[in-house]
């Protein structure tokens, strides 16, 4: 079906095609025609433009904010960890709170320290985290038991500020941080019991250490500087 279709027919068929009114057989015939007939393509392009302008009076409506994340995740997979965990979990999560600023994370050094440490090791698979500040002025090794019942931590570098305390938080996604407890004053190692139900995969969680008044935050959320951040990973 090419030469025997007159111009008016082509014009109308292009409109019907643009409106989706044709049968599958007719549609496929039009598609053949579109691939060889520039005049048909012109008709189609013009109708497409005209019909699209029927939406001129459709009011814009902002889609929900979470939809863009959903689209990005569908296309690009789960959000990648950015170069600075502070950028992601510090500013994004706690808004006005200021993380301690610093340079590049000394990740290699921390990993070395972890692998050399006899602390926090047995034969059961478990979860570990290196909780570090942006400038590695603060390094804490952490381990969560396989049954997620307790968190053992060891300070490698850094400690509480004078007259202040360290508080440990577990954070996942957009959920509010859960306090695991206040670091006992002066201790290098400590263990926190995890008594709250964790309604998400532990590997999606991040440990955060914040600077708080003695006795810990009074609000249930971090109130002071975020001193160190570390994602929880499965121990290899």
């Amino acid at each position: 079906m090419t030469d025997d279709i007159d111009t008016e027919d082509e014009m109308v068929l292009a409109a019907e095609y643009a409106l989706g009114l044709l049968s599958p057989a007719e549609e496929s015939a039009i598609e053949d025609l579109l691939s060889v007939d520039p005049e048909m393509r012109d008709h189609y392009a013009k109708w497409t433009e005209s019909f699209a302008n029927l939406t001129d009076d459709v009011a814009p409506v902002s889609p929900p904010a979470a939809l863009e994340d959903r689209i990005n995740e569908a296309l690009f997979g789960p959000a990648k960890k950015k170069n600075s965990l502070f950028a992601r979990f510090g500013f994004a999560r706690f808004g006005a709170l200021n993380p301690v600023s610093g340079g590049v994370v000394a990740a290699a050094v921390v990993l070395f320290a972890l692998s050399q440490s006899n602390f926090l090791r047995d034969d059961v698979p478990s979860f570990v985290a290196e909780v570090v500040s942006d400038d590695a002025s603060f390094v804490i090794l952490a381990r969560i038991d396989a049954d997620i019942s307790s968190l053992q931590m060891e300070r490698q570098v850094g400690g509480a500020r004078a007259g202040r305390a360290l508080e440990v938080w577990l954070v996942a996604g957009d959920y509010p941080p859960i306090s695991l407890g206040v670091w006992p004053k002066g201790e290098i190692k400590t263990t926190f019991a995890i008594t709250v139900a964790i309604p998400w995969e532990i590997e999606d969680c991040v440990l955060v250490i914040s600077d708080e008044p003695l006795g810990g935050s009074q609000t249930g959320a971090p109130t002071g500087d975020l001193l160190a951040v570390g994602p929880v990973t499965l121990e290899l």
Partner: peptide, 23 residues
Amino acid sequence: DLASTDPSPEAMAIAASDRRQIA
């Protein structure tokens, strides 16, 4: 997929006026 096929310059001119005229 075909919405982006090249129309002739004439088609473009007509399309521009279509926009104003469709209503």
